[in-house]
């Protein structure tokens, strides 16, 4: 009886929340104020999209002419609300610093090879063949962030995953030869610097911080080609460097801590 009391509480909470959620308008209703700004329930749906005055519809209609970016989400987070994204990147940077200072404080000076198991020959072979393609795919995602789905965060995580799988299979000693800690530090700092410097270009040309098209930041070509959309391309590269560096460094910190444990035992 006592054992069932806590789960029963959670099921009750679940039902109460579902009762509240059922009062929302159904999923996909175009008459939500966040999407259309129209509150007249008799307006036809197509007319809502054409004449609605909400910020979401503004983004959908004007992202190409304002930013030269085909991806509306990228245009939104890297141009209209770029200041927000700057601190989003800072959050990841700060989290990386916190993880490093927590994990490598004290007993974290391991000298092990970072490898206490030998993977089968199939795993090693497939990893060796797959890692270049994973890195290539990550770069593709980063550089086409303003043209199709993707961007700096997603591509950076894919690149980080490529290095992580290499480190797991071949050990941190061999992986550290390809991407040493010094390069990771430079990648992190350079990524954040690129972001801030292209923001400051807006001030230098006489506009606000992170102004993009009005300030005329260099690759402002036709919408839909690779070299277009100004700061979006550079910021995506900067975020990609920052995120991939942070992911790999966090993983290295865990690995180093585990090595230290192993060598102490």
């Amino acid at each position: 009886m006592k054992k069932l009391f806590i789960p029963a509480c959670f099921i009750l909470l679940c039902f109460a929340m579902i009762l509240v959620v059922l009062r929302l308008s159904p999923v996909g209703d175009p008459r939500l104020p966040s999407y259309s700004g129209y509150l007249d329930p008799k307006t036809p749906a197509e007319e809502i999209v054409q004449k609605g005055q909400s910020v979401a519809l503004y983004y959908n209609k004007n992202a190409v002419s304002d930013v030269n970016s085909m991806n509306v989400v990228s245009a939104m987070i890297l141009d209209y609300r770029a200041y927000d994204t700057l601190y989003e990147a800072v959050i990841l940077f700060t989290a990386m610093i916190c993880v490093l200072s927590v994990l490598l404080f004290g007993s974290g000076n391991g000298s092990g090879s970072g490898k206490d198991w030998v993977p089968s020959i199939n795993v090693m072979d497939i990893t060796k063949r797959m890692v270049p393609f994973i890195l290539m795919f990550g770069l593709y995602i980063i550089f086409r962030g303003h043209l199709s789905a993707g961007g700096g965060f997603q591509g950076g995580v894919i690149i980080g995953a490529g290095f992580i799988i290499y480190t797991i299979v071949f050990g941190s000693e061999k992986a550290g030869r390809y991407i040493p800690e010094g390069i990771l530090t430079i990648m992190n700092s350079l990524g954040m610097s690129i972001f801030v410097c292209f923001g400051l270009l807006g001030i230098i040309t006489g506009y606000n911080f992170l102004t993009n098209k009005i300030a005329g930041i260099p690759p402002m070509g036709q919408a839909g080609v690779l070299l277009s959309s100004g700061t979006l391309l550079w910021i995506n590269i900067g975020i990609g460097m920052n995120v991939s560096g942070a992911i790999i460094r966090i993983f290295y910190a865990f690995q180093k801590n585990a090595d230290g444990e192993r060598s102490n035992v």
Partner: peptide, 14 residues
């Protein structure tokens, strides 16, 4: 998905 395929159509809200 909010990725523009046709610029003219997107501008007109179609």
């Amino acid at each position: 998905t909010p990725i523009v395929l046709d610029t003219v159509k997107a501008r007109a809200g179609i």
